[in-house]
Design a protein around this nucleic acid. Sequence first.
DNA 1: AGAAGGACCAGTGGTCCGTA
DNA 2: AGAAGGACCAGTGGTCCGTA
Lengths: 251, 251
Amino acid sequence: DTTNALDALSQEGLSQEQVQQEKEAAGSGGGGPWEAVPGTALEKKKQRRRKGQRKLVDVNNMDDENEDDENGGSGGNERQREHPFIVTEPGEVARGKKNGLDYLFHLYEQCRDFLIQVQNIAKERGEKCPTKVTNQVFRYAKKAGASYINKPKMRHYVHCYALHCLDEEASNLLRKAFKERGENVGAWRQACYQPLVAIAARQGWDIDAIFNAHPRLAIWYVPTKLRQLCHAERNTATASSSASGGDQLPF
Amino acid sequence: DTTNALDALSQEGLSQEQVQQEKEAAGSGGGGPWEAVPGTALEKKKQRRRKGQRKLVDVNNMDDENEDDENGGSGGNERQREHPFIVTEPGEVARGKKNGLDYLFHLYEQCRDFLIQVQNIAKERGEKCPTKVTNQVFRYAKKAGASYINKPKMRHYVHCYALHCLDEEASNLLRKAFKERGENVGAWRQACYQPLVAIAARQGWDIDAIFNAHPRLAIWYVPTKLRQLCHAERNTATASSSASGGDQLPF
DNA sequence: AGAAGGACCAGTGGTCCGTA
DNA sequence: AGAAGGACCAGTGGTCCGTA
């Protein structure tokens, strides 16, 4: 099957490019512990490369617990999805076919590196220079081999990363609490909104200003829902404070 | 003709809204001398309103030299184009069916006022707040009755306004020189690029930074051609300076 | 010929929903 | 059921070119 062979080669190509990308990105804090962890994008890329090569040279061993029960046995060259996230505490490595939250946040740092590269190219060429992670940056990341980075995913968890940036201690405590309670990622994600709204309340409700004041956060668009929550809560707070300070008795 | 009557009414409505808009905008420097000058958008609106009313009440006089030889006698309710610009010196009012450059620059100030209004509405609603004159602002301006403001025109002359903001004296001298030579607006417009490139050269070639550092200019996108000229000239300048400082003889 | 601006187009921000 | 991400869509920045 020519198409599948090409696909394997293309994935092989992506894989190599990605390793190079990882090396380049290593300047900003190293690749992290995921390089040796099964189940992360990086390791999956390596698995895929091994499989691609096996088709050509029929070699390599099977050192991963779940290596071959994926892809329905249809050749093993489909681009598989990333493993889903689970709630992990800081420093904890996800076991099995899962990714942890340190890895999630690492993806945001990678996007930042890609943005910086896109900015450098734009400046070099005298073109207009993005200040945010735009479609152009996601496209660049994909071309550079980071096929596990995509816009819907990154946008989905932006506010979780925001909490991690703005109050790492609160973020860590939340992760531990939700892990202990056995909550799923969706519940943890929802729970990240409230502490951010509280931060905004303390700083005049200007969530845009809060994002922009933080260098690693400023490159991300403020999520619509977070903006709406801040707005709604501000109005509630204003109404209740004017009520308690006005002609109504506080209870 | 129902359509024409409605059109007349709609233009009447726009006209009134615009007058209100002018009053609101007057806070930032007054409406300027154009309020009483035939041939500007404002006066044309008034003419159009008079014509529209004449259809209904058959009254009003003809106090403008060119009032009725426009529109091919087809009813007088077409939305006519703005009079073309001519090169005027500062303070000079364009005569005949022309608009002057003070009026052109006034349009940029009006757009700024519209942007500020859009920003205030967005903040009020907790929506994302534009920092530049976007399509949304042009739409708002049109709805507010400023039908003589449109994107292609404003973008076309942005760099002329930039020179006016960044070096008003140089801008004024250029206007006088081109008026004296009897040059048309297109020639003057072209001539506005070079002084801006010279300004950029003095400030490290970063035309975006130059725009952003000026409060009235920061709300406008840097025109593509100006960006390209700065980039090209920077490369030329770098090449020649490295040549003269390197292994080639300067001539 | 010189100029104003309606209208188009490629690529954007945003996220839904068919997929695994 | 919970979650990842391809793919769509309304509205954007940019400006061409049919119009006057």
